[in-house]
């Protein structure tokens, strides 16, 4: 626990500010007077808009974090990287297929992966990024899906990669292909869609819509709960 009223010094793009200890980088910047327009989204670790690089005084290490999740440290030099100038590879999901070569074809730069693990170290979600890039190289789509599912596409891996790979785009393609072609449509979904189309529920719904409020309430209260 921080002591009452403890303050720390941070440097936002080199400018010095005294801010209360215990704040997240995002709240500390606001405290220091920044009205955020870029570099802020969900404020809850879900959107990846607040990608941030920092270094702590006395250390040479460049570290990566989400500004909305990381608590400020004394002597932190901060810069937000709210945008990644990565190329978006376009594809038609109806035409592309989950072949073993699909990743190398669409993202030939993954063959340049040096296995340096910088991407993994940069990931604020602690994902094994390098491992899934390697899995993509092998064409192991399931592994890519498993390892990348929690990705919020903050872009930090791509910014740090010496081989200019954009891992999160590879992962996005993998997940879509896996769902669409390997798992495929669920039977129960298709069945229910067909039932709705046949009008199976129309009459009952029509009836419910016409019930006087008191009757509807009774139906609601007497419905059987089976969870």
């Amino acid at each position: 626990m921080e002591k009452e009223g403890k303050m720390v010094t941070i440097y936002v793009m080199g400018k010095k500010h005294r801010v209360p200890a215990g704040l997240t980088i995002m709240k500390a910047m606001e405290y220091a007077g920044y009205q955020l327009r870029r570099g802020v989204g969900c404020r809850g670790g879900f959107c990846g808009a607040c990608a941030t690089l920092y270094r702590v005084k006395g250390s040479y290490k460049l570290q990566a974090a989400l500004a909305c999740q990381k608590v400020v440290e004394d002597g932190m030099y901060i810069v937000q990287i709210p945008f990644t100038p990565a190329e978006k590879k376009l594809y038609d999901i109806e035409k592309i297929r989950p072949t073993p070569n699909v990743f190398v074809e669409h993202f030939p730069e993954i063959t340049r992966c040096l296995s340096c693990n910088t991407c993994t170290k940069a990931c604020p979600q602690d994902l094994m990024v390098m491992d899934y890039v390697q899995a993509a190289l092998r064409g192991d789509i399931e592994k890519v899906v498993e390892l990348s599912f929690d990705c919020i596409a903050c872009g930090l891996c791509a910014i740090r990669c010496p081989a200019e790979i954009v891992p999160y785009q590879v992962a996005q393609l993998a997940r879509r292909l896996y769902s669409k072609y390997i798992l495929g449509l669920s039977e129960e979904v298709e069945k229910r869609v067909a039932e709705v189309e046949e009008g199976k529920f129309d009459e009952e719904l029509e009836q419910l819509k016409r019930l006087p409020p008191e009757e509807l309430r009774k139906r609601y209260e007497s419905r059987e709960i089976r969870v």
Partner: peptide, 30 residues
């Protein structure tokens, strides 16, 4: 509400056809 409940299954179908990964049971059902 009627529209919502009737179109719900089709929305899931649309999602799956775009490649949304819904959680599955071991037997493959949603």
């Amino acid at each position: 509400v009627e529209i919502l409940v009737k179109e719900a299954p089709d929305v899931i179908k649309w999602h799956q056809s775009l490649g949304v990964l819904y959680d599955r049971n071991p037997d493959g059902s949603i």
